[in-house]
Design a protein around this nucleic acid. Structure first.
Lengths: 298, 298
DNA sequence: CACACTTACGATATTCGTAAGGATT
DNA sequence: AATCCTTACGAATATCGTAAGTGTG
């Protein structure tokens, strides 16, 4: 039993005429006759009762009509579903982004994406850098946005821009007026930073340890917003990726460039090697790559 | 999108190997490759991600797997359903029979039918002769069992046997001992018969009117069983088709042959012209025609 | 180098349309 | 006689398998 046969059957069942049905199916009478015959043979009995002059359904044919209708409707629905996915008129993408990106650069990108493909749903997992990598690695999400992983990581990385740490100081601090700060100057103050699993914290400690410095941590939080608020209230200073500059300003803190050693690290797209992206995920990746919203890398 | 393509897709999705899938499908690698390619083209995108060395599903392919499973399962179910109908391993037949037949000869016939085709359901409408014809005419039932209709009737009739009226008298009546009765003898008694719409009543009156006799109706009922019981209790006599002889005996009444004029009429199968019987109905008709249970026609 | 999928090409099957046949109104 | 379905047959199309090509482990 083939799709074509079933479609032909339904049209004949509706018109009760091989000639009319053939016309509607763009098929000659003879071809249609053979098609129905083949269907009947495959099922083991007659579906139509032909009396050379008139055609009518046998009881078995009658029973097939509703079955065929449902079958073909489901068939067409499934076909449509897939076609819509491929043509970006439907779908859902799961992605993960580290909080600093998810909260700052991602929303405008998603807005643009939404304007372009309004029927594609997006699930964003706003988790710390390490969990982004884990979600991508496990296949739970198709796309991740995070710092460039170690070379030993099996994940594919495509850089979007290079992020650089900047100092965060209270707006009324004397440090706020300077065009740039040295680490030595910054570290004389009480330091506020994120809690341990955070990659921002880990990166900071790692780089400073390499030059023999330690982080004088006075307060820590697991929310960037809290860090910013603490700095704004004069509890101390911090250092965050430039990505968060806007957010810090909004919280009332001031960002100042940091001198040597410049701590910077590429931020970009993580994907799982060996697995293709869905058309929809590919579209998000493209919008991300073309978005003109990234801070200069220098 | 064709059935063959979808089946091929599912096997490849399971094995994740064109070679193995081809083997299971009895298809060469190349043919399978083309089949999948055709499916992908028809849907507008890739379903598998091939890296010359390994095959895996794209997210869209992943989405198609459950759809394809359901689609093909439904497809096979429908195919099976029809095949079972044609092979008499499933189905339902609606038929109608006049009460005298439905209550006497039909049960053993249906028992035989059931033994032969245990999975075919039968709906029997036990209604008076005229309604049997109406149900067949309207297509509500495929088969009817009734007296032969008038030649003007559009229904097809196939005789099973010829039924003849016999007298019904109380067992303790002097009439019960005779080998045959004349209508003159019978009509001297109080007469019990069925109520008006019944064809038995109509036929009786019609035949007697032709010879200038009237029916001295004392009691009437719309149930043959009640008529029999009334006769058994000495309320009077009756005349019924020979078909009901057994039933009358069981009710305590006695049946005796009737002399001239012999009232007889063929009983048989009614079908709708121009409409084919279902395989299952055909099977019942065959069992009915071959059943060796009919009284001799003479 | 070996394996696994793709592409190319000739052979086989299927499907199609035209034309003839048969039956009914 | 006209209409409608079936059957027959040659042609176009599609599908298949073998074999060569290509990229990966």
């Amino acid at each position: 039993m083939t799709v074509k046969q079933l479609r032909a059957f339904l049209v004949v069942a509706q018109t009760l005429s091989f000639a009319q049905a053939g016309e509607r199916l763009c098929l000659s009478q003879s071809a249609l006759s053979l098609t129905i015959k083949a269907l009947e043979d495959s099922l083991g009995g007659r579906l139509f009762s032909r009396t050379t002059r008139s055609v009518c359904l046998t009881p078995e044919g009658e029973a097939l009509v509703p079955l065929a209708r449902r079958l073909l409707a489901d068939w067409d629905d499934a076909e449509d579903e897939l076609r819509q996915r491929f043509s970006l008129r439907r779908g859902r993408v799961a992605m993960a982004a580290m909080p600093s990106f998810a909260g700052n650069l991602l929303p405008p990108v998603l807005k643009r994406f939404r304007q372009q493909y309004p029927a594609i749903g997006v699930t964003v997992h706003d988790v710390i850098n390490e969990e982004v990598m884990e979600l991508v690695r496990s296949g739970a999400v198709e796309l991740g946005i995070a710092f460039e992983p170690e070379p030993t990581s099996p994940l594919l990385f495509q850089a979007l821009y290079v992020d650089r740490f900047v100092a965060v100081v209270p707006a009324d601090s004397p440090l706020a007026g300077q065009s740039a700060l040295s680490w030595a100057e910054l570290l004389t103050e009480s330091f506020i930073t994120l809690q341990r699993p955070s990659s921002v914290r880990v990166m900071l400690e790692e780089h400073l340890r390499q030059q023999g410095r330690a982080l004088p941590v006075a307060f820590e939080s697991h929310q960037l917003a809290t860090v910013g608020r603490m700095v704004a209230n004069g509890l101390g200073v911090s250092a965050v990726p430039a990505l968060c500059r806007e957010q810090m300003h909004e919280l009332g803190a001031c960002c100042v460039a940091l001198g040597e050693p410049v701590i910077e690290r590429p931020v970009g797209l993580l994907t799982r090697p060996g697995y293709e992206l869905s058309v929809a995920a590919r579209a998000i990746a493209d919008v991300l790559a073309q978005a003109p919203i990234y801070p200069a890398s220098t």
